[in-house]
Every structure is written in structure tokens, then in C-alpha cells.
């Protein structure tokens, strides 16, 4: 959600893939807030909405919508994939297949990155339009070790924050976190400050992480339960399609305090539709 560190609109479109270090020069203090919004009617996305169709309240205070874009801002898709020991073998192959399907579904202006994790968190491929490099890193992954979902998710958020694009995290884990150093509440706090949207996929029958559910809920995404890793391909593609159908709404907060938790309510005027967006954002230090 990144108040104070984002350029918006056309400038975001111009942001190119670059190493993280080169991106750490954000110094433009534009007090804007971006919210990814999914509008659906009967389960189907509602298209064609414009800025004045939206009503946004920040801590209950109505805001002026600056910009709405739909399917215009390129995506930064960050795959956050569990390659721990329990995923090794056929499951990993199915996970890799699902990842490749996402890459195939991207457009030429989109970017992708790969963060893999066991107890080791690795940037398999940096955020880039070079999808072949991401595909190659995906193919090279092998299963071992324990699970550091929380550490990996934080890392992926930082990959997303290093670029001004529209970040979508697709996280898969087949179980609970057993090895992260970072605490779940700290990373959820970081998620409240980030404008990345996280979607998750978890195995239905296994003990799963409440962290993943909390994270996706906080960022406006969803955690999908799958019966087995065979279903991941379909689930990942569903996530990508859903994200493409989201509106990117931005506004400059007015009449609200700078720091603390800001509850966001996004509504569509004069329409009985379902609106899905992050519930709020955190500003200032904690």
C-alpha cells in the first residue's frame, strides 16, 4: 500500500525491470495509495468501469479517485514456490508445470520472478521480462529441506516493492511453516504496507498455514485449496485470469491522519456487485 514511495499512473508503466539495487532510489514522495479491486457480478468480472464509478473511503472519509486502470498496467508476477522435501518428486513436477503455465499466460510487457523456498529462501530468477530465464530457474528447482513460507513471502514482497509495477504474488505451500526466522505478525505488518496482492494455493488434506490465509486476506487476494498438486496448473491460471480482471484504483488520501492503520472501503456506485479489495493499509513506522 506504500504511501510515500510510489509513482502512479503513466510513470508506473514506464518502470522497467532492473536489479533491486537500482530500484532502491525511490525518493519521490507522492502520497498516493493504490488498490487492486476485483468487481464481480454473479461470480463474473464486471468490466468497463471508470474512475467516477468508484467510491473510496479511507478510514470512513470519502476520497477522490485519481485514476483507474484496467488491464493496462503490466503485471509483475512473483511465483513463491515451496520446494521443501515434502514437495519433492512428482509434486514438484506438477508445481513446475503450473508455474510454466503462468509464464505462458503472461504478455510481453509483463514481468516475472521466481522465489523458491525450503528452509533456504532463494531468488531463482529476478524480476524480468526474460521469461525464459524464469522458466529455466523453475526447471532447475529441486526438493529438499523444510519450509520457510513466512521468510519467502516477505522476500517476494520486497521483490515486488523493488519495481513500480503491479505486483501479484502467487504462493504455494503444501504445509505449515517450520523454519522461518521472521514472525508471521511482522510479515503481515509488512504486507499491510505493501501494495502487492497475494494469492495462495494450499493442499486441502494437509495441515496448512493460517499465515497464508491471513496474508491473502490482508492483501485482497484469496487462498485456494486444491486436492492435490495436479490441480495447481488450473488454480494458478485461474489466479492469473482473476488478477487481470482487477481494476487498479489510486487516490491521494485527504482528511485522514498520516500514520497507523487505514481501513479502506471500495464501493461501486449504483451497482449491486461484489467488490474484493484489500481491507486497508498501514502507514508510518511501527
Amino acid at each position: 500500500m506504500s504511501r510515500g514511495a510510489r509513482l502512479t499512473g503513466a510513470l508506473m508503466l514506464a518502470a522497467a525491470a532492473a536489479p533491486l539495487a537500482a530500484q532502491s532510489q525511490f525518493s519521490v514522495r507522492v502520497e498516493s495509495v493504490r488498490v487492486d479491486v476485483l468487481v464481480a457480478d454473479g461470480g463474473r468480472p464486471v468490466l468497463g468501469l471508470r474512475a467516477d464509478d468508484f467510491e473510496i473511503l479511507d478510514n470512513g472519509v470519502p476520497q477522490q479517485t485519481d485514476l483507474v486502470s484496467f488491464d493496462e498496467v503490466p503485471l509483475n508476477v512473483i511465483l513463491v514456490l515451496d520446494i521443501s522435501n515434502s514437495v519433492a518428486g512428482e509434486r514438484l513436477e506438477q508445481l513446475q508445470d503450473a508455474g510454466r503455465a503462468v509464464l505462458t499466460g503472461l504478455r510481453k510487457e509483463d514481468q516475472a520472478a521466481l522465489v523458491t523456498f525450503s528452509h533456504v529462501v532463494s531468488l531463482g530468477a529476478a524480476l524480468s521480462k526474460d521469461l525464459a530465464a524464469v522458466r529455466s530457474a523453475l526447471g532447475a528447482a529441486y526438493g529438499f529441506g523444510e519450509t520457510s513460507l513466512i521468510d519467502a513471502t516477505y522476500t517476494a514482497m520486497m521483490v515486488g516493492e523493488a519495481d513500480a509495477g503491479r505486483a501479484l504474488l502467487i504462493a504455494f505451500s503444501d504445509g505449515v511453516d517450520t523454519q522461518s526466522w521472521l514472525r508471521a505478525d511482522a510479515v503481515l505488518d509488512a504486507a499491510k504496507r505493501s501494495d502487492a496482492v497475494a494469492y495462495g494455493a494450499a493442499i486441502e488434506a494437509r495441515e496448512s498455514s493460517s499465515f497464508l490465509r491471513d496474508l491473502t486476506s490482508l492483501t485482497g487476494g484469496t487462498t485456494y485449496k486444491v486436492e492435490s498438486t495436479r490441480d495447481l496448473r488450473q488454480t494458478f491460471l485461474k489466479i492469473l485470469e482473476e488478477f487481470r480482471h482487477r481494476y487498479l484504483v489510486s487516490y491521494t488520501p485527504r482528511g485522514v491522519s498520516k500514520d497507523g492503520w487505514h481501513r479502506i472501503d471500495v464501493r461501486v456506485k449504483n451497482r449491486r456487485v461484489t467488490v474484493k479489495a484489500r481491507p486497508g493499509y498501514l502507514a508510518g513506522t511501527s
Partner: peptide
């Protein structure tokens, strides 16, 4: 990870990114 998260918590995004950069520079092999 700890340094990055701490910096992020303090609102220092640049420091948070630098710490993550150092993590990515570590050997990728476990």
C-alpha cells in the same frame, strides 16, 4: 531477513531492499 524487515518496519524501504539484496547475493545452494 531480520535487518530488512526491521528497516521496512521503520519505513526505510531503501535499507530494506539493500538487506534483501544481500540475501540474494548469498550462495543459492543450501
Amino acid at each position: 531477513l531480520a535487518l530488512s524487515q526491521l528497516a521496512r518496519r521503520r519505513g526505510d524501504r531503501a535499507a530494506a531492499l539493500r538487506a534483501i539484496e544481500r540475501l540474494f547475493a548469498l550462495p543459492s545452494d543450501a
